[in-house]
Design a protein around this nucleic acid. Structure first.
Length: 458
RNA sequence: GCGGGAUUAGCCUAGUGGUUAAGGCCCCAGAUUGUGGAUCUGGUUACGCGGGUCCGAUUCCCGCAUCCCGCCCCA
């Protein structure tokens, strides 16, 4: 047993898992860009106040789940427990509330909460998220739901359900709270201790209680829909109509009330339905909603917003459970071996053109007998061995051996790349810069469209 | 933060209040003077940490750490 281990609730992603996480990021990020959401990166550490102000001081996250980090005893910094408040801080700090609206962001970052680790709940976990600042139109809410539903369809997630709800806006919430508080107060004796406690703080949270005692009371609680203000109801109806129109299955559920204070109007959760994940209660694979007052809360102008955050660890496990394959191979396809001792430079020279060409190539560093090197190459997952230094492979020749088919041929050095290419795939190294394509490449009329028209304003 | 369970090598398992704690897989080396996943042989690595009881503890007790399960909550 090693002396040190990863901190509680934090884990290492070994190459295979890391590859899967990379693949998930690539897919989600590319899709976010399709929707007009470019990536933003914010620091892992934030001022404590960013979250106290926005998430709510009474919330569990701020109450006891924030990771303190102090520098030279100077407190006040925490590891970020969630993305929305941090992104909003950046949005304001850079004056982006003056940028053309809506202002959209995508993020994919580790988050930290000092909670007790449990099934799919870690102290360091990864979240992807979207934030959209500016629009008050319900269409923005709908698009974020749409993004998520289509993302899950794309990656192959099947076993989940979508629940929508609305919690009203700042004008309306007090009224709703009051009505709920009155109802729950009159049923005080039937409530769990926990909920009785919540009655004074946030009666809405009683709605998502899992306590069977509360359940009965909650079932007969006044419908939020009836308590809503006119504009809130209208907004919600349009959100529902939009989701409906796009054909995403959903359910309106009073129980979706989210634990963060900044939500107004629309809230939603994508909840896993596989029995393995529901035995411990609902696990959300994504959740979000509208936050119309958050920007102001953090000291900005009145700018509305809507967003969502998804759990990468949760998504990864759910996909694995459903048999979805993720990631790229983590093993080299080609191994360079040699029967000659001390010819490391030659091995590297053989590997280089193969690598240039896009093959994944590792070399054997040792002077071990060839059989050991072959065995090692196979164990490292190589499909092809390039062998030098044997009697047959002299004078600018090497052997290219297919380790799966167990066939080989002697090949001139100049033809190694071609020969290897017959057995294993090449990979594309991503470009450092991907510019816009040239619109002139488009051939007018090719797709049946009309000719370009002159713009009279020119 | 509060409850319950677990912790023997890199992994999986056995076992015991008393000499060198067992086996399988993996890893390394050799048998096999250089073309592989087999076989055989050998080798490295463990009683989570700290206290206590005891002549003596890996074994019993307590605390701590970590993991799992539940509460709480969320991604």
């Amino acid at each position: 047993m090693s002396t040190y281990q990863a901190p509680r609730g934090m884990r290492d992603l070994l190459p295979e898992e890391a590859a899967a996480f990379d693949a998930l990021q690539a897919v989600i990020q590319a899709r976010a860009l399709r929707y007009g959401y470019p990536r933003i990166v914010t620091p892992i550490v934030e001022d404590r106040g960013v979250f106290e102000k926005s998430v709510g001081e009474a919330s569990d996250i701020v109450g006891y789940e924030m990771y303190d980090v102090s520098l030279h005893g100077q407190a006040g910094l925490v590891l970020r427990p969630e993305g929305t408040a941090a992104v909003t801080r950046a949005f304001l700090e850079h004056g982006l509330h003056r940028a053309p609206r809506p202002v959209r962001f995508f993020y994919y970052e580790p988050m930290f909460r000092g909670q007790r680790p449990q099934l799919l709940r870690y102290r360091q976990f990864w979240q992807w998220g979207l934030e959209c600042y500016g629009p008050e139109e319900p269409l923005a809410d709908v698009e974020i739901v749409d993004f998520t539903a289509r993302l899950f369809a794309h990656v192959g997630l099947q076993n989940y359900r979508l629940e929508l709800n609305t919690v009203g806006d700042a004008k309306c919430q007090p009224k709703m709270r009051e009505a709920l508080a009155a109802y729950f107060a009159s049923n005080r004796d039937s409530l769990s201790d926990e909920s009785r406690d919540r009655l004074g703080r946030n009666p809405m949270r009683i709605l998502d209680s899992k306590d069977p005692k509360d359940r009965a009371v909650v079932a007969a609680a006044p419908q939020l829909r009836e308590l809503l203000c006119e504009e809130d109801r209208e907004h919600f109806d349009q959100v529902i109509a939009g989701v409906e129109r796009l054909g995403h299955p959903y359910k309106v559920s009073q129980n979706v009330v989210r634990g963060l204070d900044y939500y107004t109007r629309t809230v939603f959760e994508f909840i896993l339905t596989d029995p393995e994940f529901t035995k411990a209660g609902d696990i959300a694979v994504a959740g979000g909603g509208r936050y119309n007052d958050l920007v102001q809360t953090l000291g900005g102008p009145p700018v509305q917003g809507v967003g969502i955050a998804g759990g990468v660890d949760v998504l990864y496990e759910a996909l694995k459970k459903e048999g979805v394959r993720m990631g790229r191979p983590t093993t080299p396809d080609v191994y360079v071996l040699s029967a000659e001792k001390g010819d490391g430079a030659d091995r590297l020279q053989i590997a280089d053109p193969l690598r240039q060409e896009g093959f994944n190539v590792a070399i054997d560093y040792s002077d071990r007998p060839l059989d050991k090197q072959l065995e090692s190459a196979v164990k490292h997952g190589a499909k092809v061995a390039v062998i030098r230094g044997t009697p047959e492979a002299r004078g600018g020749n090497v052997i290219v051996r297919d380790l799966v088919a167990k066939t080989q041929r002697i090949t001139r050095l100049a033809a190694v790349v071609t020969e290897v290419g017959r057995h294993v795939p090449k990979y594309v190294t991503p470009p450092l810069y991907t510019g816009p394509s040239n619109p002139d490449d488009h051939e007018p009329g090719a797709a049946g469209e009309g000719p370009y028209l002159p713009d009279d304003r020119d």
